[in-house]
Each structure stands twice: as C-alpha cells, then as structure tokens.
C-alpha cells in the first residue's frame, strides 16, 4: 500500500486510463485496479465513487444504466472525448513528474 495522499492525486488518472480500455461499473473498477496493481494499489470505495462523480461533473466521463437479470441496475462509466484528451495530457504530465521527481531524488526513470 502507498501513502494515501499520493494515491489520492493519481486516482482520477487511473480511472480515466481504465475506462479508456472499456466501460466499467464502479466496483469493477475497484477490482480491476486491485488486479492490475497486484493489490499494491487499493482504492477505497469511499474514495473512488466521489472521484467518479467529480470526473462526471467535469465532463470527462459519462455514464449509463444497464439492467441486470438479478439485482439492481448497474451504472456503467464511459470515458468522453474530453476525458480522452485530458487523459493524454495527464499521462504526459505524469511522465514529466516522475522524471523530475527521479532527478530530484537522484534516480533515473526506468
């Protein structure tokens, strides 16, 4: 597990990245993050859902409801065109950030 503040800043980048691959519902995102990071990166549901809402308000993701045979309908999230743009920007920003951080703490990015 990583420092909470560190995780918080990168949550929206990760959400956008995951949604860029395919549409997902909230809990699926939680599980997918857990799987891809091999449990090193666990985003709490209490953090993820408000983050999704914020992204939705900003217009970077949209959603639709999908009925299920059993249980209540699921809210699927989908990345928007704006979202894809901001994802590109954020990703390159992230790379620059890692580079600068590595320089500052004396390591080279691998």
């Amino acid at each position: 597990m990583f420092n909470r503040e560190l995780v918080k800043g990168s949550t929206s980048l990760l959400i956008l990245q995951l949604l860029d691959d395919r549409d997902m519902y909230g809990y699926e995102l939680v599980k997918e993050m857990d799987r891809r990071s091999k449990s090193h990166f666990q985003v709490k549901e209490g953090t993820l859902y408000p983050a999704l809402h914020k992204l939705e308000k900003q217009g970077y993701i949209s959603y639709y409801w999908q009925d299920r045979e059993k249980g209540p309908a699921r809210k699927y999230y989908k990345i928007t065109v704006d979202g894809q743009e901001i994802l590109k920007e954020r990703t390159s920003e992230w790379h620059r950030y890692v580079q600068v951080m590595n320089n500052l703490i004396g390591k080279k990015e691998t």
Partner: peptide
C-alpha cells in the same frame, strides 16, 4: 438533484461488496 443517482449506485456497490 444527486440523491437518487448516488443512492442507486451506492446500493449496487454495497450489494456487490
């Protein structure tokens, strides 16, 4: 304006969990 949506989503999440 947000209550209904968040309630539905939260319910879904809790059931999944």
């Amino acid at each position: 304006s947000q209550r209904k949506d968040i309630a539905a989503e939260l319910r879904g999440l809790i059931e999944d969990m």
